[in-house]
Design a protein around this nucleic acid. Structure first.
Lengths: 195, 195, 195, 195
DNA sequence: TATGAATGAGTCTTCATTCAT
DNA sequence: GATGAATGAAGACTCATTCAT
């Protein structure tokens, strides 16, 4: 008589583990975030998420009370990821006026990362449509301004942040982002303006 | 026996008269554009459009083969409207280097017009999600660059356009757009950069 | 090459006519009313109604905006049917004090009609659960009281109505309703009470 | 190292302590009964019961094989509670013919207790819909009839019971039950009828 | 041609029930 | 036993699209 072989770790990797709430939740959230990046927050559906996460449909509502909550959590997670990019920029904030090239490397890394760029775009566009998402949409810009304002003044900091939002949209709409030199000259121009 | 009085132009504005294919098509398109501006391109439905246009449901599929085509046409129309804003800017393009204040009035008018701002955001958003919409999304930026490049060089023109895209997103995410002085200083900074 | 034979009236009787909004609506409402009678208002589902009415699922929401609206319409229709029973009683209201037997025939007809009895029960129980249904649930009792009050006084009329509600519940819970004599003696007892 | 203090009876009232199968079963049943009273038997769900009883979801299926069994048990319990009301009436049954006022106090107490009234309605409703519930729905009426029949005859007893069912429905559908005098006159009328 | 009824696919959500732990 | 995660079958509702009229 046959009996089921004991499950090994390898089995579980394929068909998501029978009991792993944390992992399930993470899988769902990850799938949702990916879909937001790829198709925008408005296109999220339970079915698409479940399929992407290789999880039964019912699981998506088990872990998130509604599609809105799920969308919000996905955007939240993307915002957290962007925060990491911002953290990488922080050490160079102090000397951005004299040595913008160093901050530039971090900025380019961001603009060259399609996932980061589309995540940011998804956050911004969600904010324009859904007022509840505004704080999330503004978080990165506001934090960047705060970070820079101490060193270059609030006016210049805002100008730089606005320009970078434009550069992000540009990257999302082109195959390649703006070039290093182009960015550098623009940044210098904004840093030279009276505050 | 009563008979219908001949409809006048004024009537038409309310409920497009029968047997006026052009007018009806325009009414549908106008309604669709408004909905895109108000709720984003993803939220378009035949029913909402028909209700807004005060037109029978069947008309929407009569004049446009699919909801995608309708969405595309609505975005097209919004792009055309934005082109008009751009046309207003054109006379001041030549002297933007020396007298950016004059162009500024047109820019502020655009940024203070929520409809224009949200139309632009809808175009950009669509472009980041749907490749077919990219040319439409890029049209305004590209035209602006072309317009300015002749006078201030392509590098500076691009920087200004990128900054203005950022300013548009900013306006869409805040209750009030950037202030006149703020914009002016930033523009001057970008115009002063080496091309 | 084959072509579809033109539909005849007979065809349409089987598979509900292609285009007959009135009939469709009526078929859905009838099916819903039957289900309410058979299973109670709480058990209504779109699927059950569509299956009973031999109509595609989507039709049920085309004609009624929500399941609540559909339930309400079904109860409304049942209430209207009960009103007809009441109308049959009306001619005998004036002489109920001296000749209760005549009214009794109408009452027994009602109590012996399972559909009418269960419809009334469904109305009453809906009223106890859903406040919006209360007016509907009370309509028949209130009308009966008004009808009788003019002739036998409001106190006696209320007592008779209350007793008949009890008799209706009794009929719904037994295979056979109360007997003619039983009813007659009880009615006489209540008619003899001081008002 | 801390250890849990032994639970006292007071604790139990809040969250039934572990390893108290009887108490837990009772808590679940009580919660279910309350929900039946408040929302009707059709609205019962495992989740709602578990939340109300402050008990893990799994417990509800542990102690009751299915939601139907749970619903049945809840109705059973409500029927038992009503029996208690009936027991209070019993001492006055013998003299109801000469002194109906004394029985009246008990009846009014019942009619003024929304929980009792709605419990009774829930029982009756279930009985009209689900044949298995009929015996439960009829228990109280039958017992009342038995109780009174010995003293006033079966015909009068039935008439009184039917009237009181009607009075119960009346109470469930109005903010205030029938008045004392109204009830008294009606009872006297029915007691005076020939058996 | 114009219209809105018709239809089914697909969306969100709830839940009974099972079962791994 | 006890628990809550897992799952899929419904449930309500929306809508693009087709098509009879």
């Amino acid at each position: 008589m046959m009996h089921d072989a004991p499950r090994t770790g390898a089995d579980r990797a394929l068909a998501p583990r029978r009991r792993d709430p944390e992992g399930r939740r993470r899988a769902i959230l990850t799938a949702a975030s990916e879909l937001v990046v790829e198709q925008g927050a408005a296109a999220l559906t339970h079915r698409a998420i479940a399929a992407r996460a290789r999880v039964p449909l019912g699981s998506t509502t088990q872990y998130f009370a509604s599609i809105d909550e799920l969308r919000e959590a996905a955007l939240q997670q993307l915002a957290d990821e962007i925060d990491a990019s911002l953290a990488a920029l922080e050490p160079h904030a102090a000397e951005i006026a004299r040595h913008p090239e160093r901050a530039l490397d971090e900025i380019l890394e961001f603009l060259n990362d399609p996932r980061a760029v589309h995540a940011d775009v998804a956050l911004m566009t969600s904010g324009t449509t859904d007022p509840r998402m505004r704080p999330l949409a503004l978080r990165w810009t506001d934090r960047l301004i705060d970070m820079l304002a101490a060193h270059i003044g609030r006016g210049r900091a805002t100008a730089v942040a606005v320009y970078l939002d434009g550069a992000t949209m540009h990257a999302a709409l082109h195959d390649a982002p703006l070039g290093r030199d182009e960015l550098l000259r623009a940044l210098r121009g904004l840093l030279d303006m009276p505050d």
